[in-house]
Design a protein around this nucleic acid. Structure first.
Lengths: 229, 229
DNA sequence: CTGGATCCAAGCTGATACTG
DNA sequence: CAGTATCAGCTTGGATCCAG
């Protein structure tokens, strides 16, 4: 008789785009799964690890539902060590991830204070996705380069290539052009405008090293991000 | 000892804009309340009426929480008949409403089929907000005019003024320049591209009457909306 | 008209155990 | 590694009735 999981999902029952979107991605954890997959395919345990508190059972349910709704796809990764199955966004899922950027920006501007950073989980790629999203389109991203960030004990990298920015979790695959190091509270102070980037660099709270031209471009990018956020 | 309502709300505990946004507006019904207030201040019963199924107790809870989070404001309406208290979006709330447009657009494009319209609740302003949001910026909205829509038994109007569009529920306060009438399934067929606007007009499934120049502008608006959606 | 109170059902958390 | 199964305890949500 199967698992009997389809007992008619609860919907808002409204002929409205927002209501239909929320019928699919409005439950707890669902949009955070989409966010996680926004920086590339991930395995089940990667998701479980990033989403502290979700519990294996609920994660399995959410992932299954997102798959049947066509937002994500299950795929058998090729040639990788360890187990093979990864989840990745479908085309619709990638569009959804883009549609979330304004919401995330709103949350960062109105609901996120630097006081939170001490108590909360933190991943460098969460901030970088942000910076990248904010700057895509309106700003010159500078020359092609790979920037590697180490914020607290989390690292992520930002690749600029042909005028487009891309974020990936973890250290860069190839040696980065620029490496940035900072403590999480320092980043919080920057975001909260208690500290300027130039002051942080001068006082060694932020260390930026590598190719000079790329460094200058990165500083300009970050400063324009801070200016408009 | 009061109501003991503040027993530490459940949060995702992540230093991330999206997670913080969802901490505030991620619970069931919350974003639909924001959507409802996006077309102007509403009374408690207006909200309860639009949000079929929410239940009075939960609506009160949500509204209270949104108020303490600074998304909406309670206000005593002046000189109106009946009871006085209305809810309206704060500045942060208006920004949130704008941030929801891409999500609503995604839902409409990927999760909403015309087959739903028969079973679902429907309000003309839900569609119009959409059209207005989609077209703001990139398209010439045409001359100043008031368009009144009657779709099924729901009506709403679209005001174009100085190049800006505004949507309001219900019939227009002043006599409209153009009146549009259609049945809900006809609209669904248009959205689903089973029917073109010109065919619908020719076959009297859609009736557009009023000022000729404004009518032409409206047809152009709707067709460009349908083209890009 | 604006909610509060209440009761029951459904969903989520957290922990652990187990399988291919 | 990638899940499924279970299960107790708690939190949310739904539905109905009631009060200022």
């Amino acid at each position: 008789m199967g698992t009997m999981a389809d007992v008619a999902r609860k919907t808002y029952g409204q002929f409205c785009g927002l209501a239909h979107a929320l019928d699919v991605v409005g439950e707890r954890w669902t949009l955070l799964i989409v966010r996680e997959l926004g920086t590339g395919p991930k395995r089940y345990t990667d998701l479980a690890d990033a989403l502290t508190g979700i519990g294996t059972s609920l994660l399995a349910t959410r992932v299954r539902q997102l798959e049947t709704d066509g937002v994500i796809q299950r795929r058998l990764a090729v040639g990788q060590p360890g187990s093979a199955v990864v989840y990745e966004l479908s085309e619709a899922g990638r569009e959804l991830a883009l549609a979330l950027i304004p919401l995330a920006t709103w949350g960062a501007r109105h609901q996120m204070t630097d006081a939170d950073i001490g108590r909360e989980a933190f991943r460098a790629e969460w901030l970088l996705s942000f910076l990248a999203a904010d700057l895509t389109g309106d700003t010159d991203p500078g020359p092609d380069a790979v920037y590697e960030f180490h914020i607290g004990d989390s690292s992520a990298c930002l690749q600029v290539r042909g005028g487009r920015m891309r974020v990936a979790p973890g250290p860069a695959a190839t040696p980065p052009d620029v490496t940035v190091r900072a403590a999480a509270p320092t980043v919080a102070a920057l975001l909260g405008r208690q500290l300027t980037l130039s002051d942080a660099v001068r006082s060694d709270q932020v260390d930026i090293s590598g190719d000079a031209a790329a460094t200058d471009a990165l500083v300009a990018l970050i400063e324009s991000h801070l200016a408009l956020s």
